[in-house]
Design a protein around this nucleic acid. Structure first.
Lengths: 113, 113
DNA sequence: ATGGTATATTCTAAAGATCGAATATTATTA
DNA sequence: TAATAATATTCGATCTTTAGAATATACCAT
């Protein structure tokens, strides 16, 4: 029971454990958007976007509403936005390490080229 | 740059995207504990615990302090606890679905047996 | 009905995560 | 310096996640 609850929490984190899915939720901060708008703004493949949206739907992070041809997505619970806000503070507090990470990525990038 | 930041956030969520790692962080809510105590309380394999601790360390969720033979772990930043608290509210608000999930798990369990 | 537009699903290969067993490291005490 | 205790790392098998290509479905307008 305790275990199942932890599994549930872990699944929630898993749902947000991908940069594209973070980006999707961030796009929806101000309100609902159609799948097409999300795809356009993020510049990703249609199929890929649809898969990520399916994951966010399955984990109840997002809800959707069909309107004719289109499907509009929105964040189901404001607390999810709240969590992302706290994380923003968190990252701000640890900006030094974030920058170190970014530098490391940049360096790896240069090596790769 | 925006991308790298999102990757960083995603990594953070990834770090918590496992029931054992959630359990570890929950154990550390009241303060530091030795690796041995964590292993004992959770009843998991030593090697496995050490791997999960390594992940939490790598993602800067936990910090550690050596004292002689032992290694004491603690949560680095209070905001992480805060995030888990908000999630508790979140799960409470959606307890209906949580219960539905638990029932589904239980059912699947019975089928398996 | 047909054609077009928006979105979802299925498939496959590649990459990543997980576990337990075995082994290594580090500190302590005899 | 051995022997022991606490923790970490490496290895290999298995399972999961991911991206993109191809295909399917649903809705709308003609």
């Amino acid at each position: 029971m305790q275990d199942a609850l932890r599994q549930f929490k872990a699944d929630f984190f898993q749902a947000l454990a991908h940069p594209t899915r973070i980006a999707i939720v961030e796009q929806l901060r101000e309100g609902e958007l159609s799948a097409g708008t999300i795809i356009e703004r993020l510049g990703i493949e249609q199929a890929n976007a649809s898969q990520h949206l399916a994951i966010l739907r399955a984990k109840n992070i997002l809800v959707n509403r069909k309107a004719g041809n289109q499907v509009f997505y929105s964040v189901r619970d404001r607390r999810i936005i709240e969590i992302l806000d706290i994380m923003r503070q968190y990252f701000h507090a640890h900006i030094t390490e974030v920058l170190a990470t970014l530098k490391a990525i940049d360096k790896a990038d240069k090596v790769r080229r």
